[in-house]
Nucleic acid binder design. Structure first.
Lengths: 349, 349
DNA sequence: ATGAAAGCGCTAACAC
DNA sequence: GTGTTAGCGCTTTCAT
């Protein structure tokens, strides 16, 4: 905080009125009837001259309202990984946009989450009116801890339903189905799945959707064709090498995000595997990098910014006490067909 | 803010002591001598049981300190563009990391900046102890407005020196020189420059560095070989088309960021211009997309996260009243040579 | 060792 | 119309 911000009292003194009068004038609206035009003007002049702005902390004490919303990023990998990830950044962008529209600030909590017992109450600190939790891992107790404290919440890609927390996500099952169907239409059925961290909310959904589709097709594939990599892309190279050495090779790989797909492409290049001729590769997310791959990635697009916007709207609703129905909103992914997928080559069929 | 957060008074009542005693106990340290072990324990138990956490607003009123730093993003293009840009996101990541280390929250101001007279005092609102301004355009009065109000500041890629604001940037002149020298060593001298928005702090520096290098080489190039695009990459396609139609073609294009370079590559592809055989292309930033281009971009790497970290440290120093010397820190860029640059083809020399 | 009281900056009853 | 007062939750003298 800065040393010398003028207070309401300063304005009042300058204008020669009581602080109360100054307050009434500066809070606009009804003041018209209450205060004489002359005083009113004197107060406004004084405020202008002193470049007065009300102290948000003092105001929030009285109003029990901060006009600020908090953001907590889930702790997927390293706990100090906030917005390096385009997924997080895209969502945050949406949050900032809507918050700006309604005059709210956004406070990002930087303290690492330890566990509900140790951490939850620290978020009930009067800094924010409510909190948006983004992509907290499945095995975390963030939502449970915060909601049990009565903190207004909204969540992205979290199991919020179970704690009555309004939640936005992209329909993971639909996304995987679209991807699988695209590959099937091209003629693939030998499809391997490269996932990210298993403790993310989306991972098991995607795996089960993948399995279901195979079952729909009466298709029985080796269990090892589901590989767990990291959403950072790490491990994708090893996974490809391993699967390429096995007795039966897939004709297509569906990666659970674009970074993993990019890792596959890079490793395919060094193994001289031609994409898409010998191997089709699909990404997921349609991150900025997707269209810039060689070849450009066929992928599933998630409306990240829209997720952030919608989540913020839900939190604002909750803050106003507006009932939220339904609690969970699933946005539709879209398939973006580029050049990394094609009909499988003859000898692979 | 949540409805029912327990107050210090609640803790005190539960423990059967005065709020004062509770405060002393909970603020640790010296309390040992002041309070009896029994009372101390009762207070701690009560706090634990109620899941008490002090109200930051109330505390900040007393302490005149919020333990929170503010961030303002410069308004390059659309004013609601915050972290979509990897440059902004990378810097923010560094800010969040350091803030977290010292227990500070980060508040992102979402209100658009209009002008100093209308906007500056709104940032003296008691929400933050100081503000980091990231990449405000050259023609903006953000720094002037805020600093004249006595708000503690630190800046990234802004003309901060002139307002005594500690500023971090990457040495733009060095970066361009490295790029130009790399191209020259390969044999290029017909080098066009594709810049971003002219009102960004870095743009004129890069242009003048480009011109100086040409002058050093006694090289006289058409003035139209400096093209103004947008840092989003928009306009790069048109710029390439235009320059390719002119009587004399460049053998290399130096783009002022990777998005512009990516735009050039895409357009080159559709014009069937071979990169790097017919045309070398350099990017700037070494964003995630750079290594994923076809061909992977030779570019200038900026330590974005480090910029954010350093800037935050400078702000924290300023908040503690530690003198900052020198005021402006220029970090060194690095050149990353990949595949988009090569020796110019014979017939172009 | 503990409590009472004042005050941070602001707003909202309630006087006058 | 305008000022006085109390209180939001907390910390900090100053008494006891």
């Amino acid at each position: 905080m800065n040393q010398k911000a003028p207070t309401l009292q300063d304005v009042a003194t300058t204008a020669g009125v009581s602080s109360n009068t100054a307050s009434v004038v500066l809070n606009g609206a009804k003041s018209n009837t209450r205060v004489s035009e002359a005083t009113r003007q004197r107060v406004l002049d004084a405020a202008q001259q002193l470049r007065y702005h009300p102290n948000a902390a003092a105001r929030s004490l009285v109003h029990r309202k901060t006009d600020s919303i908090g953001v907590i990023f889930g702790v997927a990998g390293s706990s100090t990984d906030y917005v390096t990830n385009p997924y997080m950044a895209g969502i945050l962008q949406g949050v900032l946009k809507v918050a700006g529209e309604v005059g709210y600030c956004v406070t990002i909590f930087t303290q690492p989450w330890v566990n509900a017992n140790a951490s939850a109450h620290r978020f009930r600190d009067g800094r924010t009116d409510g909190i948006i939790v983004i992509a907290s891992p499945e095995n975390s107790d963030i939502l449970e801890g915060l909601s049990s404290l009565g903190i207004p919440l909204a969540a992205v890609a979290c199991p919020g339903e179970r704690y009555s927390v309004p939640t936005v996500d992209v329909d993971n099952r639909t996304g995987i189905e679209m991807a699988m169907d695209h590959l099937r239409e091209l003629g693939h059925y030998k499809i391997a799945l490269f996932t990210g961290e298993e403790n993310m909310h989306s991972t098991p959904q995607r795996i089960s959707s993948y399995r279901n589709r195979l079952k729909d097709w009466d298709c029985n594939l080796p269990a090892q064709w589901i590989h767990t990599c990291a959403y950072s892309g790490a491990g994708a190279d090893a996974a490809l090498r391993k699967i390429w050495q096995s007795s039966e090779r897939p004709t297509a790989i569906l990666a659970c995000n674009d970074a993993i797909a990019a890792g596959v492409l890079a490793e395919a290049r060094s193994l001289s595997i031609k994409v898409p001729e010998e191997l089709s590769v699909m990404g997921y997310d349609d991150a900025e990098i997707a269209s810039l791959q060689t070849p450009p990635l066929t992928t599933i697009s998630q409306p990240l910014q829209q997720i952030g916007e919608l989540t913020t709207h839900l939190l604002l609703k909750r803050l106003q006490g507006v009932p939220i129905e339904p609690l969970t909103v699933l946005l539709d992914p879209k398939i973006v067909v580029r050049k990394s997928t094609s009909v499988p080559s003859e000898d692979n069929q």
